[in-house]
Simulated scan of single mutants.
Amino acid sequence: MYYCSNIILIILLNLRCIYSSAGDQLEQYRSCLYYCVDQECDTDGRSYLHNYDEINIFPFMQWPCFDECRYNCMWDTVEKLESANVSIPQFHGKWPFVRVLGIQEPASTIFSFLNFLFHLKWIKIFRKRVFSGAPLYWMWHVFACVNLNAWFWSIIFHARDTQFTEFMDYCGAFSIILINCYVLVSRICWILGKLYCSLISLFFILFYTNHVLYLYSARRIDYNYNMTLNFSIAIFTVISWLIWCYWNRKSKPYVDKCAIYAVLTSAVALLEIIDRAPIFYTIDSHSIWHLSTAFLVGIFYRFAIKDCNHLKRHELKAKSLNFKKPL
Rank of each mutant, 00 (worst) to 15 (best):
I57V: 14
L101Y: 08
W140R: 05
G102Y: 08
F126Y: 15
S132F: 11
Q104K: 02
H92A: 14
F118W: 02
V86M: 05
M139H: 08
V142K: 04
F113L: 15
R70C: 13
T109V: 02
M139L: 15
K121L: 14
Q90F: 00
F111V: 02
P96W: 08
K94G: 03
R129F: 13
I125T: 12
C65T: 03
V100W: 01
N56D: 05
I57R: 05
Q104M: 10
V146Y: 02
S87T: 15
F97D: 00
W122A: 01
H92G: 11
V78S: 06
N56E: 06
W75S: 09
Y137N: 04
H119D: 01
Y71I: 09
H92V: 09
W95D: 04
Y137D: 04
F60E: 03
F143W: 12
P59H: 10
R70D: 10
V142E: 01
E105N: 00
R129M: 15
T77V: 08
E68N: 11
L81Y: 05
Q62W: 10
W95N: 03
A107M: 12
P96G: 08
F66Q: 09
M61T: 12
D76L: 15
P89S: 09
G102R: 06
K94H: 11
C73D: 03
L117R: 07
F66M: 07
C65W: 04
R127Q: 11
F143H: 12
V100I: 14
V98S: 07
F131G: 04
L81A: 08
E79H: 11
E82A: 03
F126A: 12
P59V: 09
F143T: 03
T77N: 01
V86E: 07
N56G: 05
S87W: 00
K94A: 11
D76V: 13
F97I: 03
F116W: 08
T109D: 05
P59C: 08
F91L: 09
S87H: 02
N85M: 06
F58M: 02
F111R: 01
E82I: 06
N56I: 00
N115C: 12
E82Y: 10
A107C: 08
E79R: 14
P59G: 04
P135R: 12
N72I: 09
Q104H: 07
C69L: 10
F116K: 03
P59W: 10
F126W: 00
N72T: 14
Q104T: 02
I123C: 12
G102P: 05
R129I: 04
H141E: 07
N85E: 03
D76H: 15
K121N: 08
V130W: 02
E68T: 13
S132M: 04
I103E: 01
V98C: 11
F97A: 00
F58A: 06
F131N: 14
F60S: 08
N85D: 02
S83Y: 06
F118M: 08
M61K: 02
K124T: 14
L81K: 03
S132P: 01
R127L: 10
P106A: 12
T77I: 13
I125C: 09
Y71K: 07
C69P: 05
A134E: 06
L101W: 13
R99P: 00
P64K: 07
R127H: 15
I123N: 04
L120A: 14
L117W: 05
Y137Q: 04
N56T: 06
N115H: 07
R70V: 10
V98N: 13
D76C: 12
